[in-house]
Design a protein around this nucleic acid. Structure first.
Lengths: 335, 335
DNA sequence: TTGAAAGCGCTAACAC
DNA sequence: GTGTTAGCGCTTTCAA
């Protein structure tokens, strides 16, 4: 069933059918109704490819994320997809992995598929060496690129993020204020936002008069789901002489690793060890005691991002960078 | 830049350009190279819409799931997306929610967008009253429909699932064998696979000579992430007279709720309460003690499903229903 | 208010 | 091995 069939059955031209299809006002009431009836009768729906060819858009947005099974990213995708759909857009999902090569090829694929915009979910898409961000600059010459929890200064790329520096800084100060000065920063990524969190921690500690060599940090490199491996690494670190009574983790997974470490080593939380996570995911309420965690209001960020993208696509002006602030949700793992 | 531009610059016809683009063998080596050079020089990529219009496919698969932020579903989507991409297909993701209306409209939307196939991730898409499955039967008349962890007897729909009945039956028997006969089945869904798990539990218990009224079941209706609410419900159930020393939960979230319940009520696990989960998600290793859980080998299911879909799309025969068996991963919450 | 017709950029059947 | 040409199904001028 094509527009020709409908026009024939309705006794009008294809132009008229097209007009009623697209809600043009230049159609008389009775003609419109006649066409509508035929359309309904034959359950006709226009061919999306043909329409795409004519309009040069199929109203789809490409969503790239490294690993859609990561709790945080999964949640972000969920919020974004929902909002996009509400705005009449579909989402093509690309799980790229953490490798630059595959990110680039995913990006090209999306461009080739002629998406209307691209959303990069998570800070791991931004590289320190700006040469490695070329694929983003390039993509942005074709379509608007939105960054969630990352920032990049480039025309046609827009960043929506949480002020990780501020919230981690604040969290560190709070833990210090609770009487703990030997704090270990336990992290797993050296991405854009990862770096900012780390330096916030370092700055806050230095503010306490601590020398760099007295500040403890530990980088975890394993799978983000392998809680046991995290605990093991902490145990090893402790056994090799690391002394700490607080752990600030760069995400809730790592914080869970810290809790497991405490349990395996007979440390009471929070009396002997304070633990603070990040993301305030459901993991924070599934452990015992429940986890104090930084909430950066992911849903708000995602809604904002999606809204901004649709504004850009409508040709409206949008701020290049929007920063929200997180807040610390106090639970049982800190004093 | 179109195929005409390229043909002109290369001094050949568009047909020849099209041939080299599609790897046709009927092109001489030097002509091919000439065209390739021009393509490279101008970074030409064919217009996907035009191609879609001609071929009537854009090599995309629609993935529907109720909630992509659910750990289990997120993981499934991850596996499926990866495998599809490897096979040259893109995925349009639709998070439908649990409401039939929105499922239907998502389904229609995917059909309208002319996807090549549709994957329904999770058993909540199948309804008891087959009238409510009409949207699936209908969709299957247009494109193949794949069901993950659900089954529906209909032409052009293919089911890949884990034998939930068998694994839950086995799990129940094991718990009974460990000396616990007062077992509570804690579940949250009355979907296809939810029902099968429940009846497996009931059958196994009845096999022990227990009368229906002595078998304990408890339905949780809250958010799947609200562990505290689960624990609360269990506490209330216990306080109102429910006596049980084992809990078999229909997923790991609920099992975490059970663990929280035990902790809040000072019950030692597994000495005073055994707990068994389902899905063997990362949640199973993030609690203390670690959770015994049924693993239904999601990755295998997803790979199988994706492979089957691509077979169908290639016109090959594929079994209408494929059942794998799960296995119980023994950890610390059971004796 | 309506219709005719020219694209949109590609594939593939057919001719050479 | 290569070129010509007719679609694919829609949107959108331009005329009437």
């Amino acid at each position: 069933m094509t527009i020709y069939d409908i026009s024939e059955k309705a006794g009008v031209s294809i132009a008229t059918v097209s007009r009623v299809l697209n809600g043009s006002s230049n159609v008389s009431g009775k003609t419109r109704q006649k066409v509508l009836d035929v359309i309904e009768k034959y359950e006709y729906t226009p061919n999306a490819f043909a329409r795409g060819l004519g309009l040069n858009t199929m109203k789809t947005i490409g969503i790239m994320c490294a690993d859609s099974s990561d709790l945080y990213l999964a949640k972000a995708i969920y919020y974004i997809e929902r909002k996009l759909r509400a705005g009449g857009y579909d989402s093509i999902l690309c799980c790229t992995g953490y490798n630059l090569e595959t990110k680039i090829s995913s990006m090209n694929l999306l461009i080739t598929k002629k998406v209307d915009g691209i959303i990069l979910v998570g800070s791991n898409f931004i590289y320190e060496n700006d040469k490695d961000n070329k694929y983003i600059h390039d993509a942005a010459m074709q379509v608007p690129v939105m960054l969630l929890n990352a920032a990049l200064d480039s025309p046609n790329v827009f960043s929506i993020l949480s002020d990780d520096y501020a919230s981690t800084y604040e969290a560190t100060l709070q833990m210090i204020a609770s009487g703990i000065t030997d704090i270990l920063y336990f992290y797993n990524s050296r991405t854009y936002s990862g770096k900012k969190r780390l330096s916030a921690f370092l700055d806050a500690m230095r503010g306490q008069g601590l020398a760099n060599e007295d500040i403890l940090t530990l980088l975890y490199r394993g799978s983000h789901e392998d809680i046991s491996a995290m605990a093991k690494q902490l145990t090893a670190f402790s056994q090799s002489g690391g002394v700490f009574h607080g752990i600030i983790a760069s995400d809730d997974y790592l914080a869970l690793g810290a809790i497991k470490y405490a349990r395996e080593n007979g440390l009471r939380i929070p009396e002997e060890l304070s633990v603070l996570g990040h993301n305030n995911s459901m993991l924070a309420t599934c452990c015992d005691p429940e986890l104090t965690s930084v909430d950066d209001n992911l849903e708000l960020l995602c809604n904002q991002l999606t809204h901004a993208l649709m504004e850009v696509l409508s040709g409206n002006e949008v701020p290049q960078k929007t920063v929200f602030s997180g807040k610390i949700i106090k639970r049982g793992t800190t004093r």
